[in-house]
Design a protein around this nucleic acid. Structure first.
Lengths: 347, 347
DNA sequence: TTGAAAGCGCTAACAA
DNA sequence: TTGTTAGCGCTTTCAA
């Protein structure tokens, strides 16, 4: 039980006095105790305990130049950030990994374009050691900001300007969207389906284009009109499905680029009295908690380990920070996490 | 354009040298420029610009004892934190208010009971100036932690140990749950309903008990068996509704303590062929975005300004911090935010 | 293995 | 109005 919880907090100095040693020794003990004789360590630890000593963070940061905190920059509209389970699971993974390494998470919500200035100042102001950011768009200012601030950053989702997965420049963590799409389409083909359509996501998101590429990998000769555009929403999935049925009344399978669109497609199929999977087999993507298993029939879909992606992002960043400190090791490499096919009733 | 983005960042000293003034003058200018002659201000500002100077946060904190950051402590299971729109809207409000006052938000997710130690160390380590926390339970350690850390805190939701709304001790922000419930029940009564039931929320959440109290305020003589227990979930609402119909086949109105339970009740009513609102009028609570307006019929419900509550929490805390600095003003008082009845088709 | 001392970059008295 | 100076609490050489 600390003696005082009020008034000025005890300093290293006070602990040193109490333990009858020098400040340097206390500092060593507090930071792991290497190279201090056991009895002294104990004496210091006791003084720390008695005084309820807690190191002053600012003083420490001032000399070590490390803050023990990283920023999570969220440029998405917050509505999406909070409602999309994708983010929340990612954040959870990040939070767990950071916590395990005694690193704090500073949440930077970008509320508007004007906010980037604030973010830039913050990142350059030495508040954090590194940054994590999501789904970069072509003109995204975040990479430039972190570069100028001189802090390492890791991104979630393949930035749109990089060439194919595994590419250069900014390190990122992304699911194997292309491979997952191949899994889905191959599954449909193996089921004996011959006219397999695709409901694609928005062309400006790499997760969507990568999934489309995966579809094409397996069906390079497919009729281009078997691909309809969607926007990752239920409604857009329904619209795309209607469109596809118009163009190809004989299609026997659909791979939708995400579960939300798949559920929209499912609704249209049901309305038209088309049996799933008997007449049309359907595969989604994401294995989204509140969607995939709840549809009727439950959705066969491609799953990715989202929380794991978050952990990985944090781990890559922490490794980069370590590297900055020790001077060795290589720059973080991007990581593509595996995807798996989850078989349910729709295909 | 700053001259250098690499290498050691320029210090006050460097700016002073470049501008041909003392460090103190630069410091004054950087902090508002009061009491510095215009030409000097300009000269300093120019040097700042040229060098791309950004104040070192740690150094500043070390002397001012202010960090410019506040912690948001989330003790809820993160699943709920992220899925419940209640939290996300609250956070948004908090984030906006803090941003407007150049204050950063540090997110502290409590993942398990063991984490409180970490939180305590963090809060006491001078990383943040204050804390915001949610929905305290009777044995919640957070108040003790912040007290020991010597930092002000503001809570979201009335802590369970306080007496009736507006009470002592820890300052909190909460909706007028009791008043809102009265609004709902009075509305049903004014509709001429005579057997008004209530589906209550869990007894360990003050939002639930306050709403129950509001129900009783208006109907002090109501048969106690007209109240059924729920758990704020759709399923529990359905169960409670079935129970109520069993006990009181003749009931003509239901006030559910939240929209989720109301939607569950609605389902049961529909299954039994009971017309809403003709035979049974139904009112919910929360005006939850994706629920209240989407049900069939759309729900009449009690709305609260959630984002505003978040803003208010932040504002109260910022005010307390100001007070700590200037030494005057009073301790923050709890605030109860108003609720309003939103009429739709269900009652 | 321990201690003495020199800063880290900034603010805030106090003097000029 | 401006400058000088003394720390804020800590880590980290360097000597002992």
């Amino acid at each position: 039980m600390p003696e005082q919880s009020r008034g000025p907090r005890p300093t290293l100095e006070a602990v040193a006095a109490r333990a009858g040693v020098s400040r340097a020794t206390v500092s060593r003990v507090v930071n792991g105790g290497d190279g201090v004789r056991k009895p002294l360590v104990d004496k210091v630890l006791q003084a720390v305990e008695e005084l309820g000593y807690i190191p002053n963070h600012a003083a420490r940061t001032l000399v070590t130049r490390r803050t023990g905190a990283v920023a999570v920059v969220v440029a998405e509209p917050e509505t999406r950030f909070f409602s999309d389970p994708f983010f929340s699971q990612q954040i959870r993974g990040i939070s767990k990994e950071l916590t395990a390494h005694d690193t704090q998470l500073v949440l930077l919500l970008v509320e508007g374009p004007g906010d980037f200035d604030r973010i830039a100042r913050y990142l350059a102001g030495g508040h954090v050691d590194g940054a994590l950011a999501f789904s970069l768009h072509t003109d995204d200012p975040v990479p430039a900001i972190t570069r100028r601030a001189g802090i390492p950053a890791v991104y979630g989702g393949r930035p749109s300007w990089t060439a194919d997965p595994g590419d250069q420049g900014v390190p990122y963590v992304d699911a194997d969207n292309r491979g997952g799409a191949r899994l889905a389409v191959r599954h449909l083909r193996d089921l004996g389906r011959e006219r397999i359509a695709h409901i694609a996501g928005p062309a400006d998101q790499t997760s969507a284009t990568d999934r489309l590429d995966g579809y094409r990998d397996v069906l390079p000769d497919a009729d281009p009109t078997l691909v309809a555009d969607g926007a990752f929403t239920v409604e857009s999935g329904a619209r795309a499905m209607a469109e596809l049925l118009e163009r190809h009344p004989d299609l026997d399978a659909v791979f939708a680029a995400n579960d939300l669109m798949a559920s929209g497609a499912l609704r249209v199929l049901r309305e038209r009295g088309i049996a799933v999977p008997e007449q049309v087999a359907l595969v989604g993507f994401d294995d989204m908690d509140s969607v995939a298993a709840e549809t009727d029939p439950p959705l066969t879909t491609v799953a990715q380990e989202i929380e794991g992606q978050g952990r990985l992002m944090a781990r890559l960043l922490l490794r980069a920070l370590d590297r900055d400190r020790t001077g060795d090791g290589e720059a973080p490499e991007s990581v593509i996490t595996p995807t798996t096919l989850v078989r349910r009733a729709s295909a």
